[in-house]
Each structure stands twice: as structure tokens, then as C-alpha cells.
Amino acid sequence: MPKGHKRKLFDQPQNVINWWFAIKAIRISRPYIEGALRVFLRVRLSFQERKRSKALEAAFETTLREFRKLNSTKFDELKVFFNLSLFFLIAERDIQSVKVDALSHPDKWKRNVSLRIILLVIHEWDMAKVAPANKLNEAYEAAGISQESRDEMTAAFRKINKAHAKAKKLLARARHSTIAHRDANALLQYELISKLDAQETLKIAVSFYDGADLFIKTLPKLMLEAGSLPSLLKQYGNHA
């Protein structure tokens, strides 16, 4: 892709397209049709997200089961990748649980709560504490991970970290007063909740999902490499 060339909307992953259209539809709607539009969006999004929810649940259960088995072995590098995967899936399932409500629930307060949950999950998504760059690079080397997989993971991390940084900025004040803690000044707490920018929150969520989709595509390939016989022998030899 030429330098400076922006990806077109329909070149994006389907989840990003869906979120973009939902945001656009709500933004341009008039107050007297907004209720009907949200009903339509709720039905459509619920149907679209059902398949993703089932896939996420299956991936979560499989990863958790295999990680528990792996925990008593010497394959430390593979543990790094499984830990990264499980950390991601926990956050992903949290967002998935409230995403439809954040976009389409008829009650404004319920939408606001769901938006705050999404922001908080993304805000707390600190990949540096789960997989520090030096530790991840050591795991890549020890497991013999290809440069292609490393580059794809780096690209996914950059997109997710960009959404994380935006969420931290948007939540800088509201997080401590309305989500993680409750400010003793109830009026201030209410004002902060009421002023939460729904459109900006949804943009951050779209940005997060752009990186998350790339992460989902890359991580299984990386774990297959780390779980291959040559890689397992290499890892075992490192700790023999």
C-alpha cells in the first residue's frame, strides 16, 4: 500500500464496518426517529453479534483449559503466548457483553453505563504489563517465531495501544470519580457521567476492534508456531 494512502471503509474488517455504520446512523438521525432507529439497530446488531459471541466463548474455554494443562510444564515461552491470549479474551468478552447495549439500548442511562464499561476495559488494557516488549521478544526468540508473525503482532499492538491511549485521555477524570471509584460530590459525579462523549467513546471502540481483529487473526498462527514440534524441542532444550 503506498505511503500516506488510507484504507477505504469497506477494506476494513466487518466488525469495524458495522460499528462505523451504527455510529453514523445515530449521529445523523433526528430525535423523532432515533427511538425507531435504535430498535432496528438493536435487532440487527444482536443478530450479527450472536455468532461472534459463541466463537469468543468457545475460544475462551479452549484457551483456559489448555493453559491450565500447560501451567505445570517447562514450556515458559508458550505460557507467555497463552497468558497474552487469555488476557485478551477476558477483555474481549467483557466488551462483547455490553457492546449491543452501548449502541442501541432504549434507556439512555443503560447506554451510558455500557459505554463506561467499554472505556474502562480499554483503559485498563495495558499490554506492557502483560507482555513487556523485552519479555515478548525473548519468547519470540526462544520459540523460534517467524519475523512475519512478529511484525503482524507488532501492528496489532500498535492499533490496540492507540485506542488504549485515547481511552486513558477521555477517562482521565471520569474514571476515578464515576467508574473505578465514586466521588463524594454526587453532583460532580453526575455531571461527569452526563458529559461522557458517546460518539468519541464509540470511535475509540472502533479503533480498538480494528486492532483486536488483527490480533485475533495473528495470535493463533503465532501459537501454532510456538506449539510445533521443532519449537517445543527448542523450548525444552532452553530449560534442560
Score class of each variant (00 low, 15 high):
184 A>T: 08
173 R>E: 14
141 E>W: 06
185 N>R: 07
200 E>Y: 03
174 A>Q: 03
175 R>C: 04
154 T>L: 12
135 K>A: 14
157 F>W: 11
168 K>E: 12
184 A>C: 07
147 Q>F: 08
146 S>A: 06
197 D>S: 09
188 L>R: 10
190 Y>D: 08
181 H>Q: 07
144 G>S: 04
190 Y>V: 05
198 A>W: 02
181 H>D: 06
199 Q>F: 13
175 R>M: 10
135 K>W: 09
145 I>W: 01
164 H>T: 06
153 M>R: 06
200 E>D: 09
172 A>Q: 14
181 H>L: 04
169 K>V: 07
154 T>D: 10
162 K>T: 14
143 A>M: 03
166 K>V: 06
163 A>L: 04
132 P>A: 05
155 A>P: 05
157 F>D: 08
153 M>E: 05
190 Y>G: 00
197 D>H: 07
138 E>T: 12
141 E>D: 13
174 A>K: 06
178 T>N: 00
139 A>N: 06
140 Y>E: 02
191 E>G: 00
161 N>E: 15
138 E>W: 14
152 E>I: 02
173 R>L: 07
142 A>T: 08
161 N>V: 02
155 A>D: 11
196 L>H: 10
186 A>I: 05
172 A>M: 08
133 A>I: 13
165 A>D: 13
156 A>V: 09
155 A>M: 07
189 Q>H: 12
149 S>H: 09
179 I>G: 00
134 N>E: 15
138 E>A: 15
188 L>I: 03
154 T>Y: 10
148 E>A: 14
200 E>R: 10
187 L>H: 08
173 R>D: 12
146 S>K: 02
176 H>F: 08
197 D>R: 05
158 R>M: 11
171 L>C: 14
196 L>V: 11
146 S>P: 08
171 L>V: 04
132 P>R: 04
132 P>Y: 09
174 A>G: 05
170 L>S: 06
177 S>R: 08
197 D>T: 05
176 H>M: 07
137 N>Q: 13
187 L>R: 12
165 A>Q: 15
165 A>M: 12
188 L>P: 01
186 A>N: 03
153 M>Q: 03
173 R>G: 06
156 A>D: 03
145 I>A: 01
161 N>I: 05
174 A>P: 01
145 I>M: 02
134 N>L: 10
161 N>K: 10
141 E>I: 01
144 G>E: 04
145 I>P: 00
141 E>V: 09
147 Q>V: 10
182 R>E: 09
196 L>I: 13
186 A>T: 05
136 L>D: 05
191 E>D: 11
199 Q>L: 07
192 L>E: 09
159 K>M: 11
149 S>E: 08
159 K>V: 05
152 E>Q: 11
135 K>T: 14
187 L>T: 15
177 S>T: 12
176 H>I: 07
175 R>Q: 11
167 A>I: 04
179 I>H: 01
141 E>Q: 14
